[in-house]
């Protein structure tokens, strides 16, 4: 899976599903970088074919609306959209 990885403090397994063109996705990625946490991210709009379908199904498991950004923490908790407060709270 072509995830990009950002090093930082380990606050659980963080996966950010994002779009390369989306302003709120960018703000979310920059917030995670500011918080200096370790996370992986993937730009779903840049994927093609089977890989794209696979990742879309993955996102839908956590967010049936298939909207972005979708941040998944420890394969369990999901934060949809640039919700700064919720993200900060979850990563204390």
């Amino acid at each position: 899976m072509p995830m990009d990885h950002v090093d930082g403090d380990n606050k659980g397994e963080l996966v950010l599903y994002a779009l390369s063109t989306c302003g709120w996705c960018k703000k979310t990625r920059l917030l995670l970088e500011d918080l200096k946490v370790e996370f992986s991210y993937i730009y779903v709009d840049l994927l093609e074919g089977e890989e794209r379908n696979e990742i879309i199904e993955q996102v839908k498991k956590y967010n049936s609306n298939l909207s972005f950004p979708t941040l998944v923490i420890d394969n369990d908790k999901t934060i949809v959209g640039f919700n700064e407060e919720k993200i900060r709270e979850a990563l204390v």
Partner: peptide, 8 residues
């Protein structure tokens, strides 16, 4: 010109 914040 699809919405940049949604998956096209």
């Amino acid at each position: 010109g699809a919405c940049p914040c949604r998956l096209s």
